[in-house]
Write a protein that binds this DNA or RNA. Structure first.
Lengths: 137, 137
DNA sequence: CTTTAATTCTACTATTTTTATAGAATTTAT
DNA sequence: ATAAATTCTATAAAAATAGTAGAATTAAAG
């Protein structure tokens, strides 16, 4: 399941994607429109900025805007940015690989291979969902 | 990601699946072989029992055994039993449906449709992985 | 019928993660 | 200078996760 944070991030990106080109959106407007606690959204937008998905303008008349094109931002990107690995175990992850603490010999693990199959299929599906595809429902 | 509990459950089922027919396995043996804290495993095996995936025999010479056939137990079953919904949001779930607390009008939600697509694909992939397929890796 | 060794049941606890909130500092248009 | 926005750092409450403790129950075997 997605965390609230990831869901809010998606809703914020959807909001930004629906604004006209070059429009800059204030946190307050996004928060109200998407029903997200404002202070929480501030942090999320900063995370999205650090992830190079949105840009910001500071000061009065400041706000946020999409940095990447709607159809270049995939569900996989956002999941990885906020909830981390797409794989079901760290040992089956491409971007967040880690050995399992309780695993004595990874090459002998019966689980890993199957979980990598799931990862490949899930990843492919998640890369097929973009902000643009969601907006165009 | 799978919780430790789900991972341990899978490892326990894999252990049981590798025993010869009609063999009854003690919790202690499973715990040692699969490197799972014994007391934690006890609870997990009880959950698997309540989920009708394993059966048990009490008393001395007691233990656990697979109740369903290896190829009838899928990753989807185990995920649902321990980690719940396979969908990324409760509103997109088949078995664990719930409205999102912050959602004003579900029919207007741009996210839901895409997440149901992901759910269908992930579910299909997870139903393709069985205890038997993992053992026969 | 007592001992032994297993499951079963209930409760508890520590840690980590999640979901925020608070407030000061900084930036920039007017 | 003022106003209104982002940015930064710290804190806190609540929920979920991971695991422990110990007593009760069951059943085999001498």
């Amino acid at each position: 399941m997605l965390s609230q944070k990831t869901k809010y991030a998606l809703k914020a990106l959807l909001y930004l994607a629906q604004q006209e080109a070059n429009h800059i959106s204030k946190t307050t407007d996004i928060a109200e429109s998407a029903n997200i606690p404002k202070k929480f959204l501030e942090q999320i937008l900063l995370d999205l900025k650090r992830g190079h998905l949105v840009g910001s303008k500071q000061g009065k008349l400041g706000g946020y805007y999409l940095l990447k094109s709607k159809d270049e931002i995939t569900l996989a990107d956002i999941h990885r940015l906020f909830d981390g690995a797409i794989a079901l175990l760290p040992c089956a992850s491409l971007n967040f690989y880690e050995r399992c603490s309780d695993c004595t010999d990874e090459s002998e693990c019966l689980l890993r291979h199957g979980l990598m199959t799931i990862r490949d299929e899930t990843l492919k599906a998640m890369q097929g969902i973009t902000i643009a595809s969601l907006v165009n429902k």
